[in-house]
Simulated assay, not measured.
Amino acid sequence: MISTIVRFKLAPGETHEEALEEIKKTIPIYQAAAPALIRKAIHLDAEAGVGRSIYLWADRASAEAFFARASEMIKAKTGHAPDVEYLDCDIVVDNQSGDVIFN
């Protein structure tokens, strides 16, 4: 498993509500990435003009393929490519399902 932390800039002057509405439109993209994309969390800070997403992927190749496409989409919208950090994920404790997953 691979975790990714993605840091991105919001469009200039974009409010929290506007950013949230734009991201809601992209939800089908993330749903279509299953089963390779296990989880995604989104964090917005409109005051600072930035956002962060944390992903859990089944494998690095899937994550890299996804971000090769998604980075271009983000750059086209904001003028800035996101910063993507890849982290090997050794253990996931999922309190919702009760599962503990070892990589």
Rank of each mutant, 00 (worst) to 15 (best):
V92P: 00
S97I: 09
D90R: 11
R60G: 10
A65S: 10
K77I: 01
Y86T: 13
R69T: 12
S97V: 05
S71R: 09
A76L: 09
E64R: 10
A58D: 14
V84M: 05
I74W: 04
K75H: 11
C89P: 00
K77G: 05
R69D: 10
A76Q: 11
A76G: 06
V93G: 04
I74K: 01
G79S: 10
V84G: 04
F67W: 09
V93S: 05
L87E: 12
F67I: 00
D59W: 03
A70W: 13
I74R: 01
C89T: 15
D90L: 15
A81F: 06
E72F: 02
D90K: 13
H80I: 03
H80G: 06
K77D: 12
F67Y: 13
A81Q: 03
P82N: 04
E85A: 08
K75F: 02
V93Q: 06
M73H: 12
K77H: 13
L87R: 14
Q96K: 08
S71T: 12
A76Y: 00
V93T: 09
I91T: 15
A65V: 06
H80F: 15
V92A: 07
L87M: 13
I74A: 04
F67T: 00
V92D: 00
D83N: 09
E72Y: 04
A63V: 11
Q96F: 13
A65C: 02
A61E: 14
Q96I: 15
A70C: 04
H80C: 07
V92Q: 10
E64K: 05
H80Y: 13
R60K: 15
G79T: 07
E72K: 14
A65L: 06
N95I: 04
F66M: 01
V84A: 09
E64N: 03
I74T: 10
W57R: 07
I91Y: 09
S71A: 15
S71N: 11
K75G: 01
P82A: 09
F67G: 00
I91V: 15
E85C: 05
V84S: 06
C89H: 07
E72S: 11
P82M: 05
R69Q: 11
A76K: 15
T78R: 02
L87T: 12
L87V: 13
D59P: 00
S97L: 06
A68F: 03
F66Y: 14
V84Q: 07
S62C: 08
I91E: 09
E72G: 06
A76T: 09
A65Y: 05
Y86F: 14
W57Y: 02
I91M: 15
D83G: 08
A68T: 14
Q96C: 05
A70I: 11
A68D: 08
V84P: 04
Q96S: 12
